[in-house]
């Protein structure tokens, strides 16, 4: 089989050639800089390439959406970042955005309109589901996950914040895996402990760390694969798993990585 060369065009390159992409892939800070989540970015980029999507990224023109600043209470920094992002997005005439980060997703989708930025925003779980439904992703025939137990950890900013519960589950079902739910799932899902700026500070004094409470619940399902859909959840759950010394027997993957694996990418 001919080896595919994967491409990541930037908006600037596209604009120079007078082209407009179908969709902007908003990579996010974790997707750009966090070593673990860069793998997710790469997996999702491969999927977009394989499916033949005309997409682009902002590259160095992308900034943080401002979510952690806003949640921490720093509205000035949030709005400065948001405004400059909106200027860049509008300069390129962006209409549709997909992102693998629920925090970016929530901010772009719900909070940018009030500041003048109006886009159709999708989380990559929703986008992947669309591609699967349209037959642009084919995972059939690959037995990698058949019958394997997978549990999905709901991200607060995807679930409760935006009522996206089914899309990530549909994506996992396409793997023909055995989806097992944790005791607290969907609307009752327990936070990983990173939201609201917690990712960037030490937790307050308590009996236990939140990610330990959550990883224990995930391990109780007996699944050897824990699926996540958020860079912060990925960090917190991975730390929890290390704490339990289970990183050899249990693996944590983002939805995009699982799909890429099933596609043999």
């Amino acid at each position: 089989m001919e080896e595919q060369t994967y491409k990541v065009p930037t908006m600037a390159e596209m604009a120079a050639q007078n082209e407009t992409p179908e969709v902007l892939f908003w990579v996010g800070c974790a997707g750009s800089f966090d070593d673990r989540y860069k793998k997710v970015t790469i997996a999702f980029t491969k999927i977009l390439n394989k499916a033949g999507i005309k997409f682009a990224v902002l590259g160095t023109e992308e900034s943080c959406t401002g979510d952690p600043a806003r949640r921490a209470g720093n509205e000035f920094t949030f709005q400065m970042l948001a405004m400059s992002n909106i200027q860049v997005l509008d300069m390129y005439g962006v209409k549709k955005i997909v992102t693998a980060c629920p925090h970016c997703f929530n901010t772009l989708k719900n909070e940018y309109p009030e500041l003048g930025g109006n886009y159709e925003v999708l989380h990559h779980s929703e986008y992947l589901q669309q591609l699967i439904n349209e037959g642009r992703i084919r995972t059939q025939g690959n037995q990698a996950f058949t019958g394997k137990k997978i549990t999905f950890h709901d991200s607060c900013y995807l679930g409760r914040a935006n009522d996206v519960y089914e899309a990530p589950r549909h994506v996992l079902e396409s793997l023909d895996a055995d989806l097992v739910e944790m005791k607290r799932c969907k609307t009752k899902g327990l936070c990983c402990g990173a939201g609201g700026g917690q990712m960037f500070k030490e937790p307050e004094k308590g009996r236990k760390d939140i990610n330990i409470e959550r990883i224990e619940e995930a391990l109780q399902t007996g699944a050897h694969t824990i699926a996540v859909a958020c860079p912060f959840c990925m960090v917190m759950m991975t730390d929890g798993l290390k704490n339990k010394e289970k990183e050899d027997s249990v693996k944590i993957y983002d939805l995009a990585e699982l799909i890429a694996q099933a596609e043999g990418l």
């Binding site: 800070c29 800089f33 990224v57 992308e62 900034s63 401002g66 952690p68 921490a72 920094t77 990712m199």
Partner: peptide
């Protein structure tokens, strides 16, 4: 984190030029 956001446009201390 605030400082990083203001100078590097990311919550961590990475250069904006390294985003891609």
């Amino acid at each position: 984190m605030f400082q990083n956001l203001e100078t590097n446009q990311a919550p961590w201390k990475f250069s904006p030029g390294d985003r891609l």
